[in-house]
Design a protein around this nucleic acid. Sequence first.
DNA 1: GGGGGATCATCTGCATCGGACGCTCCACAG
DNA 2: CTGTGGAGCGTCCGATGCAGATGATCCCCC
Lengths: 190, 190
Amino acid sequence: MADGRLTRDFGRIARYGRRMSEVRLTTPSFLVLGIIDKLGEASPYDVKVEAARTVAPFWSMPHAQVYAQCDRLLEAGLLSEVRQSGGRNRRLMRLTDEGAAALRGWLADPAFVPVEARERGILKLWFGASPRVHAPVQIEEHRRTLDGYEELAGDVGELLTRGQREALEFGIRYERMMVDFWQWVESREP
Amino acid sequence: MADGRLTRDFGRIARYGRRMSEVRLTTPSFLVLGIIDKLGEASPYDVKVEAARTVAPFWSMPHAQVYAQCDRLLEAGLLSEVRQSGGRNRRLMRLTDEGAAALRGWLADPAFVPVEARERGILKLWFGASPRVHAPVQIEEHRRTLDGYEELAGDVGELLTRGQREALEFGIRYERMMVDFWQWVESREP
DNA sequence: GGGGGATCATCTGCATCGGACGCTCCACAG
DNA sequence: CTGTGGAGCGTCCGATGCAGATGATCCCCC
């Protein structure tokens, strides 16, 4: 084995936009672009709130990151500042043509990046933790989020776009799978 | 809503060992501790290779990190250097009592940390990418890793510890779920 | 006795993390 | 009015994590 494939390939850097000061575009970059695209026009704060409201279960960023990304994207010319309303320097931003192109390029790119399931519970199992201790907590928590998702699907399911509905469906299946899995773990004879 | 819960709670820092220069123990720390515990005695390189061989699908670290973690853990007194065999400074390390206690504490702690499913594919769906483009690739790739896991389970299933077998089962269920999900996405009428 | 590939380790530069801190605005009480 | 407190909004910093390049040492085989 060549020097072990230990890394995560988190990056898979893209450079769809071809202009200006050459930034590396990472997934968080596209998260910001995607949200601003949805909102049309937004301040960093709007982005942050919207991210927390929507995509956080799939990909969250700490607050400070949002501002940093916006700076980077502005500098790279993928976003443009629309206006500064007075005192509080509230920057409203839009996608530039380059920004829109970059987003489209990313969305269209089917490149597969293998995921790791960063489940601490599973890791603990691997290292020999007691299923007795962990299973009940896991089942309870996954059931809770599963309920939340299902309620969401029932309540606002109609209002979602197709893609959003599908992402939600993924969440539901994931949580259902986890509940089943931990029940299976619990039920094994010791 | 108070200032949005946007963050990931990646940390959930622990401090089970109570000695010395106060390090923050993160999941990677316990990964290293867990592996050294399994191996009994190991150099950073051994840890890195073992990690790549085993837990990488659940939690991988880039090479450099392993060395950094070892340094931190040594300094904190959770690991001890056993010997330096000559020229190439090959440090062999063991868990100290504190290290073993820290690991036990972590393993016993059922605290639930919500996962994010950092699936780029799902994120792209959310933002409106075309299922037509992505589904076939995703199905293919997930099926491939699923096959790999199942083969593994067949081949060496007997040799694994209970926890390892369970972790593998998780992998299988996860991949199976993904294949089903993307097939469902693909099959929806447009 | 020296080339070359596997083994082992480190450095560097950047992205990201989390949490604390600091503004601005507005509501409402005094 | 004036003051004060909390929600809305933004920034900073130290620690950690990341990817890849690069540097050494070993050992096999010629």
